[in-house]
């Protein structure tokens, strides 16, 4: 039930921000549309029960800021590799253990790994994440485990 409400609210916000027309006709149509979408989403949900992680959204902000910083840093690193000699790269493949409890947490972790250039999560099975890294340094910084810890703090 909580998921339905939060989804409805977020969709309503999405509609209002997209539309920008606040005449009764469009607002009414928007309400109908949202109801339709929620109904379809419910029907889709009925087939497996993965929770909507939308309620996590609010706790994301500090994590996003940290992640943005990481992205900038690793971008600089990769661009240096691109313009530098090819021999500077040292492709590496490592295995990490995702200590997050929920599936959603693991997905956030894997996506964060991929989002920072220089490291790509290739496989996520059980709690094992297989990562391809452009350089040894990038791999090592992942193995340091700070990102995993931060994602774990997100769930709780």
């Amino acid at each position: 039930m909580r998921h339905i409400i939060s989804l409805t609210l977020i969709l309503a916000g999405f509609w209002l921000l997209l539309s920008g027309h606040f005449v009764p006709l469009l607002l009414g149509l928007g309400a109908v549309s949202i109801l339709l979408v929620v109904a379809i989403a419910l029907r889709m949900d009925a087939f497996d029960h993965e929770n909507q992680p939308l309620h996590l959204t609010f706790r994301f902000t500090p994590y996003w800021v940290w992640l943005a910083g990481e992205i900038v840093k690793s971008n600089i690193e990769v661009v240096r590799c691109i313009w530098g000699p090819v021999s500077a790269i040292s492709p590496t493949r490592i295995h990490l253990t995702a200590t997050q409890r929920s599936d959603v947490g693991k997905v956030i972790y894997a996506n964060s790994i991929t989002l920072t250039p220089g490291t790509v999560a290739m496989r996520l099975e059980g709690d094992q994440i297989e990562v391809h890294a452009l350089t040894r340094a990038a791999a090592a910084s992942l193995q340091g485990g700070e990102m995993g810890r931060r994602v774990r703090e997100l769930e709780r």
Partner: peptide
């Protein structure tokens, strides 16, 4: 799962 509702709503928009 997260994306689909938004795509649907965007279509209706």
């Amino acid at each position: 799962k997260i994306l689909i509702p938004f795509v649907l709503l965007f279509a209706l928009y």
